[in-house]
Design a protein around this nucleic acid. Sequence first.
DNA 1: TGCATATGAATGAACG
DNA 2: CGTTCATTCATATGCA
Lengths: 188, 188
Amino acid sequence: MSFPLKVRSVRGNNGGGGGTGTKCGRWNPTVEQLKILTDLFRAGLRTPTTDQIQKISTELSFYGKIESKNVFYWFQNHKARERQKRRKISIDFDHHHQENDYISHHRQPSTRDVFEINEDEEERVIETLQLFPVNSFQESKVDKMRSRVNNQYREYIRETNTTTFLSYSSCGAEMEHPSPLELRLSFL
Amino acid sequence: MSFPLKVRSVRGNNGGGGGTGTKCGRWNPTVEQLKILTDLFRAGLRTPTTDQIQKISTELSFYGKIESKNVFYWFQNHKARERQKRRKISIDFDHHHQENDYISHHRQPSTRDVFEINEDEEERVIETLQLFPVNSFQESKVDKMRSRVNNQYREYIRETNTTTFLSYSSCGAEMEHPSPLELRLSFL
DNA sequence: TGCATATGAATGAACG
DNA sequence: CGTTCATTCATATGCA
């Protein structure tokens, strides 16, 4: 089903111990966090940059304990699973081989197969996000640089901190929790 | 939470398939292999040369199926992830509560840092390893090779074809499986 | 209760 | 080397 309609039971204890559970096991997003993440994803964000991850993390930290790695993993997983889902579906669709015998022995339940074909269709990945107006004119430049910078300018990078966009005017200091997507996107 | 200390589970059916899994998919280090690799890493080894890779691989093959490329990738990944882990620590301070001054941390995100995953403290990188006396006399050659080696494994492969690095004349062509770290290091 | 599933986390492999 | 992708591991969770 599209995205978790499951309302993670609100474990109230998101304060001290871990926010994810009683014993600080693994992070478990709160509904607010999940909504924001999902919104961002639906808006086209797939592979946030480091700064984006940081900002998202910071923003989400208001709603509960979270680390940037959680945001990182979330996007990685979400993207991967969307891809995987699509892939399986297509295979199942055009190939459609039902090898009954093949499944002879127990297959490991660990392997996730995908079953749901339904999906509230996502927007195609927006190639050039316009979500980040501040960076807009620089973003493409940065993007291009990102991949090749490391070859020759490895040492340089430190200096060429291209990110000269500090325009989170409303980011953080004392922010309400903006509900609207628009507002959320703005802090990036 | 340190980390799960997952003893790579039962996939280990090291018999038929491939030693790494039922389907011989990708390599999965056995605990012994992992320990040796980790030891070497902790001892300061970061970017093994081609022959070192060969020797390590040979050594590890006793404990299970392994190819040299696995060793190559392992070090690449381990090094990269250690770095990104460390890099992240600097900015992922507690941001549970917003600082009023957002610019407090300025650190140039080289490209994409990720996060911190805590882990047992690593030894500092030993600048000049003395662990590998055998190669000492051909230091320069090794140095030259080194830059090529770490580009891509393909290049690494190419390298192995054209290079005359069969220089483990007296260095453990066939060996027992030494357990102690000292012994392990010696075969390099 | 026990399995199926959803998903956080980890890591092998590989790309640019 | 930094980044990204694919697959797997490990849990949490939902349901019958």
